[in-house]
């Protein structure tokens, strides 16, 4: 595929021309932080963001998503994919999207996610301002960067847009972008090659060693110690780009004969996550917070590795920043276990 050059002052008109085609979801400022939101005014675009509060998975897998509508006992599917551009996705989040793509496709393909995913065009962008808790430079390194359609790299006097799929080519075909010169392409390659070096936090252990050691520590008492300040709030789950658990609930409409079934994000840290109703009460298969805390780390470092080809963590650092008690940072927890 091809590389194009966009001068610094041309970025907004580039985004504007995308907005003329379809809605563009991109990083914008929200208070002192950033979120992915639909661009209303192109001036809001902030490709210099560090990280977003919620990962971009919400575009395909919204926090609350209608699954089906029913009326008079008849149910119909709520699939209603809307084409959009997802602009400015950092490489760690692209890796996470490639994981959720696989997880929602495997075995039973889930069209509630995949239909939204298929109509989206993803334009990644390099990290200009690393988030202080991020450790993407030292995790999921074996995972190929795939799933995006194009990638924007900031160079000294503008951007290089590397288009990697036909979907990406089709989107920008009529924008009249200039080809990137050999020097510009080479500068962009250099920027991306040293991106991981600029990542603030390092996880100094190989994925295989982490997986083995964490898995073998299942019965260790260390989990009680590590989780003793856990509020079971599930913030670490909710901000995680690779968490994809959900609950399903029904709600009635005002007509009392109609309503909706929806799913909403759920998290394995919440106390009722594994609870079932039984005669005369309930049975909870992970009753203690240490069990739930351990489950999350097992799932991130060990359980899904065979399926994903890498740990289910891309080093975004969002959980570290979101945890009130600051006990969710994978770097701290993994280090503590590796050194135990």
């Amino acid at each position: 595929m091809s590389g194009y050059y966009i001068p610094s002052e041309g970025l907004q008109s580039f985004a504007q021309s995308l907005m003329a085609k379809m809605p563009v979801v991109a990083p914008v400022a929200k208070g002192k932080r950033f979120i992915f939101d639909q661009l209303g005014d192109v001036a809001e675009l902030r490709l210099d963001y560090d990280t977003t509060v919620l990962p971009p998975k919400k575009v395909f897998f919204p926090p609350k998503q209608d699954l089906l509508e029913f009326d008079e006992g008849k149910a119909t599917s709520c699939l209603d994919p809307q084409a959009k551009v997802l602009l400015g996705v950092h490489p760690y989040d692209i890796k996470a999207i490639s994981m959720t793509d696989k997880l929602f496709s495997d075995n039973y393909a889930d069209s509630n996610y995949l239909a939204n995913r298929e109509v989206a065009v993803i334009i990644g962008s390099n990290v200009q301002t690393p988030y202080e808790r991020a450790f993407y430079g030292s995790i999921a390194q074996d995972l190929e960067l795939v799933g995006h359609d194009a990638f924007l790299t900031k160079i000294s006097d503008g951007y290089v847009l590397d288009v990697v799929t036909e979907k990406g080519e089709k989107l920008i075909a009529d924008l009249g972008l200039a080809d990137a010169s050999a020097e510009q392409t080479s500068e962009a390659e250099g920027v991306n090659a040293k991106a991981d070096e600029d990542c603030p936090v390092k996880l100094p252990f190989a994925a295989g060693d982490v997986s083995e050691k964490v898995r073998n520590s299942f019965k260790s008492e260390i989990w009680d110690e590590l989780s003793k300040d856990c509020f079971s709030c599930g913030s670490c789950n909710l901000v995680c780009p690779t968490c994809y658990c959900f609950d399903v609930q029904d709600e009635w409409g005002l007509g009392a004969s109609n309503g909706k079934r929806y799913r909403r994000w759920d998290g394995c840290l919440s106390s009722e996550f594994s609870e079932v109703s039984v005669q005369g009460g309930s049975e909870n298969f992970r009753e203690n917070r240490a069990e739930r805390y351990r489950h999350r780390f097992m799932r991130k470092t060990a359980y899904l590795n065979d399926k994903l080809g890498a740990p289910a963590c891309v080093g975004c650092g969002r959980c570290a920043g979101a945890c009130t008690a600051d006990i969710a940072d994978p770097v701290n927890t993994i280090t503590r276990i590796m050194e135990s």
Binding site: L103, F104, D106, N107, Y108, D110, Y244, C245, F246, D247, V248, R263, D266, C268, F273, S274, E275, V276, E283, F285, H295, M298, R299, A302, Y303, L304, D306, K307
Partner: peptide, 24 residues
């Protein structure tokens, strides 16, 4: 085995035991 199973198709995560999904 019995577990909480919301989706029944190995997605929602509730029934997971290690790398196994009880529903699937």
């Amino acid at each position: 085995l019995e577990r909480r199973m919301k989706c029944g198709v190995g997605k929602c995560g509730h029934c997971q035991i290690n790398d196994k999904y009880v529903c699937m």
